[in-house]
Design a protein around this nucleic acid. Structure first.
Lengths: 220, 220
DNA sequence: GTTTTAATTTAGATTTGCCTAAAAAAATAT
DNA sequence: ATATTTTTTTAGGCAAATCTAAATTAAAAC
C-alpha cells in the first residue's frame, strides 16, 4: 500500500464526503477544506496522475475505485480513533473529532487493525456513523423519504420517484437534483410542507406532495 | 503552547538524545537524522530564532530550557504511546518504536494526559526508559561505574574519578571524555578489561584499572 | 443568441524542508 | 607554524503545498 501526504488524504476524504452522488466542484471542495480554488485545481491534477480521482478541466471530480478505497481507509482510522477517545479516554462527544483529525493520518495498517480488535470491533463511532471494516466495507445508510427525514439532519437526494416533466421542471426550478445536499429546517404539519435549506443557499419551501416523491440518504 | 512541525520536533528530540553532556555537532545530528549537514545548519538557524536552541556558527548547539521542555513533551508522548501499543494493543517489544515515531507528533496535551491516566500513569516504557510526567519531570538515570555497565547498553561518560595528568593523557589518546557515548561489546573476566565501542568509531580495548575510574549514565 | 456573471484554470510568487557543490573555518598533522 | 584534512556554513536549486491576480471557460440572464 502506497503512502500519501496528510494534505492528499484530507482532499480524498473531503471529496468522499461531498461526492455521494454526482461530481464535486472546485468551489465546493475549496470551501470544505478552507482553501482556495486554485489550490484545489493544483491538487486535483496531482491526484489524477496518482489515479485517485477522475478529473477533466471544468468538469468536476469523482473518486476512482482506488480513491474510494483510500477514503474508506482514512474514515476507518478516523472513526476508530473517535471511538477510542470517547470510550477509553472519556473524551466528550464533541471533543473527539478534532483530535481524530490528527490521529487519522498515522498510516500503520497493523495499528488500526489492532486498535479495532482492542475496541471490540465497534460498528459505529460516537456520532453514530458506521465504521468501515478492515476490508473497507461500510454499512450504507438506507434510503428514506424526505418526508421522514429528521430536522437538521444533513442528507443527499438520491432518487426521485415521479419523473414526469412537470415534476422535473419544478425540481430544476428549485435547484434540486440527484446529489443535492439539503436539510429540513421546519416541518408544517398542516399541509406537510417543509422548509428546507440547500447547501450554500438560502432556505426554500416545498410542498408535501413534492417531498413524498423525493428520497434521500443521510449525509455524513 | 505553540505548535511545531514534525521536522522541528524530530530535530529537538534528536538534540536531546545526543546532548546529555556538552554540545551537539552538525555532523552528529545529520547522522542521527539521516540528513545532510547543510540541512542541519538551516534548521538550527530556524530553531535559534524560535529560541529552542543555543547556536553560534561553528560552535555546536544545545537546547535552551524551552527546547528541553519541548523535548520532554515529545519524549513523553513517544513513550506513552509505546506503552499503549505494547500493553493494550499487544504489539511486540520491537514493533512499538516505529509506530510511536508517528503518533508522537500528534500534539494535543489533553490527549496525552488522558492517555497517561488511562494507562495508569506508567513510569517506564516497554524498553525500560522512564516516562516524563505531565510537568516534564523525568527520572534521571543514576550514575554507574563503567565496570558495571551491561553489555551493549548505550551510555554516556559523565564523570572521571582520577583526574591525574597520566589518566587524562590516556583518556585523550583513546578519545574518551565527558559526554562521550559508548557501549561495551565484550567483557574479559581474566583482567576485567573491556572491549568498548565509541559512537561512530571502531572498537577499542580499555583496562579494568581505567574502567574503574570512569562513570557513565545510561543513554536513551 | 449575446452579454454578463460566476466558476475554474493558469501564471507566477512564497514558504518549508531538503539537496549539491563550493567556500570558509576549525582541527589535525607534519 | 604551516599545510592538510575535516567540519561547517553559504549559495543556489528543487519539490510540495499554498497563495494572489489575471485569463479563460462555462453558466446564467437578458
Amino acid at each position: 500500500m502506497l503512502n500519501y501526504s496528510t494534505s492528499e488524504e484530507n482532499y480524498i476524504k473531503a471529496i468522499y464526503h461531498l461526492q455521494k452522488e454526482g461530481t464535486v466542484t472546485t468551489n465546493e471542495l475549496a470551501a470544505e477544506l478552507s482553501t482556495r480554488p486554485a489550490s484545489v485545481t493544483d491538487m486535483m491534477k496531482k491526484l489524477r496522475t496518482k489515479k485517485l480521482v477522475h478529473y477533466e478541466a471544468y468538469k468536476g471530480f469523482r473518486l476512482t475505485p482506488e480513491g474510494r478505497k483510500l477514503a474508506l481507509i482514512i474514515i476507518r482510522r478516523h472513526r476508530l480513533w473517535e471511538f477510542f477517545l470517547a470510550e477509553k479516554l472519556k473524551f466528550s462527544w464533541d471533543e473527539v473529532h478534532a483530535v481524530a483529525e490528527d490521529l487519522e493520518h498515522v498510516s500503520s495498517k497493523k495499528l488500526i487493525d489492532k486498535l479495532d480488535e482492542f475496541l471490540g470491533f465497534p460498528r459505529y463511532d460516537p456520532h453514530g456513523d458506521p465504521i468501515p471494516d478492515a476490508n473497507g466495507k461500510i454499512e450504507t445508510s438506507k434510503q428514506v423519504c424526505l418526508i421522514d427525514l429528521p430536522l437538521n439532519k444533513a442528507a443527499v437526494v438520491c432518487y426521485v420517484s415521479d419523473q414526469s416533466t412537470e415534476m422535473l421542471e419544478l425540481l430544476s426550478h428549485k435547484k434540486i437534483g440527484i446529489g443535492t445536499r439539503l436539510e429540513i429546517k421546519k416541518k408544517f404539519s398542516f399541509d406537510q410542507s417543509l422548509e428546507i435549506k440547500l447547501r450554500q443557499q438560502s432556505a426554500t419551501t416545498i410542498s408535501g406532495d413534492l417531498a413524498k416523491n423525493i428520497f434521500v440518504k443521510y449525509d455524513e
